[in-house]
Nucleic acid binder design. Structure first.
Ligand SMILES: [Zn+2]
Ligand SMILES: [Zn+2]
Ligand SMILES: [Zn+2]
Ligand SMILES: [Zn+2]
Lengths: 133, 133
DNA sequence: GTTGACCTTAGATGTAGCTCTAAGGTTTAT
DNA sequence: ATAAACCTTAGAGCTACATCTAAGGTCAAC
């Protein structure tokens, strides 16, 4: 299939697919006589693999590492795959923690603000940001 | 105080302080005869306000809006401040939700992976990413 | 009187992951 | 035959927020 069909079947933008090729993630397995990229069914599977990696939050570098394992499973061990997912999990839980902290601060910040049309002179949002803690 | 002292007292990099000035967030209230930036105590308060906004996750544009309210409270109303915090809160809870989804997927992904030195041929992490759902 | 710490500016660079443009060649349908 | 829809490349642009560089001016201490 040509690039636009792969785009349709994966939902990945053709520009992005070319970018993935340049990044070493997904190379079309053939070229037509006109130099068009021709993707195989295996390429489609790889593209979907990449998409799922993205949905899990993996960076392109991590995705590349996972792809390398996928492409040559016998040369790799479980520990490699698990260390990638574990570091990602750790990163994610850190981010969640940070966001929850922000959420708490913000909720507190606006808890006593009326949110109405009255002057902001006594707005707790502003005064709390001013005062700090 | 000069820029390096403000840097010390706020923990905000001097480059960043200049950047904030260029972005319209924080202008030194004076210049010395040598054209050095001279910051007042009020400027210090503003810098700390900016820092707290950053800790809450506000973008520079949102921070600028909050600063405008702070600087002229009587011209603004609570509704303005609250709409900023509310949109930020919504954004944050969306991000948290997304991250928790990833966290769940990743946890499931690696639940059955031994993580050991055996071949990745039957690694559930890789096979789950391949299979999708 | 020179070394080193400080200050200025404009503008370049970095991050990550795309997204788009320009300029041109090819294919398909009417 | 010609228009629309596809394809190619190299490289620019985008976001958000800094961070750094180059080239130069100023200041205080020993
Ligand atoms: Zn109010
Ligand atoms: Zn209020
Ligand atoms: Zn295993
Ligand atoms: Zn495994």
């Amino acid at each position: 299939m040509k690039i636009s069909e792969l785009e349709k079947r994966t939902g990945i933008n053709a520009h992005t697919l070319r970018y993935y090729e340049k990044s070493g993630l997904l190379k079309a397995s053939m070229r037509s006589v006109n130099n068009y990229r021709i993707y195989s069914e295996d390429d489609l599977i790889t593209a979907l693999f990449i998409k799922r990696c993205k949905e899990c939050g993996f960076s392109l570098a991590q995705t590349a590492a996972l792809l390398a394992i996928k492409h040559d499973k016998s040369l790799h061990v479980c520990a490699e795959a698990k260390s990638i997912t574990e570091s990602k999990l750790q990163e994610i839980s850190q981010q969640i923690e940070q966001l929850q902290q922000m959420e708490g601060t913000l909720t507190e910040l606006q808890a006593y603000c009326c949110g109405g049309q009255e002057s902001a002179e006594f707005c707790t949002i502003i005064s709390t940001l001013e005062a700090g803690k």
